[in-house]
């Protein structure tokens, strides 16, 4: 078996006296659909903040495509191929949807080389696959919740990532909208992108993931195929507090 795309080993993160992550180790393989679950405050977002570079880990290592990245600034990690969406959408509000993607195309890739017109065509192409083509010219602050979620994914995709981290991209969406976003993520995965999904909506994460990891109070309490993790007694205790 080839080396994993992402290898997190012995990762720890403290905020003052509070230990948010404690000796977390996990491998995510190239092309995998990986689910990350856990109750509120269990450290899911902290973990992906450490991976994407928004936070610096205190201990442990993060290898991406075989290289240590845990001391690199976030923008360099994005250029190496780690893209993310945010739990609460963070659009560039003063820009149109198209311009939001152009930022990612201009800055998020390892090298430049496209002309201005080519990048615009490409951005519109990406918006097309996300079903946002007719919104390209409107301000991102005027989008609906589900459109914002899709734009965040589109913006992440515009950086041509190898790994896409989706942080609760479905929170606050209706049933049919959840299916829409889920289908989108599955299509991206089929196009070869490794995806880590953080989600509270259980049926979505179970349907999506090939492998699931559950965090509780900064530690891994279960890891494996979705059904096995769901059936794990400690996972049920963590969620139900039993």
């Amino acid at each position: 078996m080839s080396a994993p795309l992402l290898r997190v080993a012995g990762l720890s993160k403290r905020f003052g006296g509070f230990t948010a992550l404690d000796d977390v180790s996990v491998d995510v393989a190239q092309g995998e659909r990986f689910g990350l679950i856990g109750p509120n405050g269990s450290g899911k977002t902290t973990l992906i903040n450490c991976v994407s570079g928004a936070l610096r880990n205190d201990g442990g290592t993060i290898l991406f495509a075989g290289e240590e990245i845990s001391r690199l600034p976030a923008f360099v990690r994005t250029r190496r191929g780690i893209a993310r969406s945010f739990q609460i959408p963070r659009p560039f509000k003063s820009m149109t949807v198209l311009e939001n993607l152009l930022v990612a195309i201009d800055f998020g890739r390892a090298g430049h080389g496209l002309s201005a017109d080519a990048t615009e065509d490409e951005a519109i192409g990406i918006l097309g696959t996300m079903g946002l083509k007719d919104k390209a010219r409107i301000l991102s602050s005027q989008l609906s919740q589900v459109e914002l979620r899709k734009m965040e994914l589109a913006r992440a995709m515009a950086a041509k990532p190898k790994l896409l981290i989706s942080d609760e991209a479905m929170a606050g969406l209706s049933g049919s909208e959840i299916d829409e976003v889920l289908d989108l993520l599955i299509r991206l995965n089929e196009a070869g992108i490794t995806i880590i999904m953080i989600e509270h909506i259980m049926h979505a994460v179970m349907r999506f993931s090939q492998r699931v990891m559950c965090l509780d109070a900064g530690r891994i309490i279960a890891q494996g195929v979705p059904q096995a993790v769901m059936d794990d007694r400690r996972v049920q205790e963590a969620y139900l507090g039993a």
């Binding site: 976030a74 003063s94 820009m95």
Partner: peptide, 20 residues
């Protein structure tokens, strides 16, 4: 374009690859 991204949301800009 990078500066405007910083003005709108610096964290998101950094995570979109902008060397803020």
């Amino acid at each position: 374009r990078g500066l405007r991204a910083i003005r709108d949301d610096e964290t998101a800009a950094e995570c979109t690859g902008v060397p803020t």
